[in-house]
Amino acid sequence: MKTVLCYGDSLTWGYDAETGGRHALEDRWPSVLQTALGNGVQVIAEGLNGRTTAYDDHLADCDRNGVRILPTILQTHAPVDLVIFLLGANDMKPVVHGTAFGAVKGIERLVRLVWHHSWPGVQAEAPEILIVAPPVISQTANANFAAMFAGGVEQSSMMASLYADLADELGCGFFDAGSVAKTTPLDGVHLDPENTRAIGRGLEPMVRMMLGL
């Protein structure tokens, strides 16, 4: 049995911009990926609304700093064959960091944490890592989200190329979620059911290759 850990934010959790609730389980991209890969693979969805790559969000009522939480998550789910990082959109908030460069440095920190983690005995070596760039933030008439992600449209448009360069430098896999999915104009950040399903479908070939399936 292969294990895939999907470490992400609200795009992985399945936030529904239309209702403010959560997409049906079968519509969330980790579930779609699980169905596509079949019973020989366990896909674990570790999504948290507002999670950043490596930065504190002092307005949150939980710890959204992805770096601080990751070691515990790795220890919880070991052994892991592949870690998928789909993070960075929340780094675009000016109160968090506000730049694509900041998101890339955060992703690099997460990758190195996986490499150097003190894995339990059941994990012989560090897992493969797949870096996924989130879809570009879009313009929205939602005043709250527009203010929360001020400057995010321009900055997020740089993430895919920067993430691709980082993945190449570090020897990680790379996938641009924006190549198959677009954010909804309802809030400019999240995905409707079809677009979150599209990420799961789009990731399948890359995940199969990285797992040797």
Rank of each mutant, 00 (worst) to 15 (best):
K2F: 09
T3Y: 03
L5P: 06
L5G: 04
C6I: 08
Y7A: 01
G8Q: 02
S10W: 01
S10Y: 04
L11Y: 00
W13E: 13
W13S: 05
G14Q: 04
D16K: 06
D16V: 09
T19F: 10
R22A: 10
L25N: 11
E26Q: 14
D27N: 12
P30A: 09
P30E: 03
S31R: 07
S31H: 13
V32D: 04
V32E: 00
L33D: 01
L33P: 00
L33E: 07
T35H: 08
A36F: 04
A36C: 11
A36H: 09
A36D: 14
L37Y: 14
G40N: 15
G40Y: 06
V41L: 08
V41K: 06
Q42N: 13
I44R: 03
N49K: 04
T52F: 06
T53D: 04
T53P: 03
Y55L: 11
D57W: 07
H58M: 13
L59Q: 15
L59F: 11
A60Q: 09
D63G: 12
D63R: 06
N65S: 13
L70E: 02
T72Y: 07
T72N: 10
L74E: 03
T76S: 10
P79N: 05
P79K: 09
V80D: 03
D81S: 14
V83C: 05
V83N: 01
V83R: 00
I84M: 08
L86F: 03
L87M: 08
G88Q: 01
G88D: 05
G88T: 05
N90E: 05
D91P: 11
D91E: 12
D91K: 07
M92H: 07
M92C: 07
P94D: 09
V96Y: 06
H97S: 11
A100M: 08
F101Q: 08
G102T: 09
A103H: 03
G106N: 06
G106S: 13
I107M: 14
E108N: 14
E108G: 15
R112G: 08
W115Q: 10
W115D: 11
H116W: 09
H117T: 07
W119S: 05
P120I: 10
Q123R: 12
A124E: 14
A126K: 09
I129R: 07
L130M: 05
A133R: 02
A133G: 02
P134T: 02
V136C: 01
V136N: 01
T140F: 02
A143V: 15
F145T: 15
F145R: 13
A146D: 08
M148K: 10
A150P: 05
A150T: 11
E154F: 12
E154M: 11
Q155D: 10
Q155M: 09
S157N: 08
M159H: 01
A160F: 02
S161I: 12
A164I: 05
D168K: 14
L170G: 07
L170Q: 15
L170P: 04
D176R: 12
A177E: 00
G178Q: 07
G178K: 04
K182P: 00
T184D: 10
L186N: 10
L186C: 09
D187A: 05
G188Y: 01
H190W: 03
H190M: 03
L191E: 00
P193E: 07
E194V: 05
N195D: 15
I199Q: 03
R201K: 14
G202F: 01
P205G: 11
M206Q: 12
M206A: 13
V207I: 14
G212N: 13
G212D: 12
L213D: 14
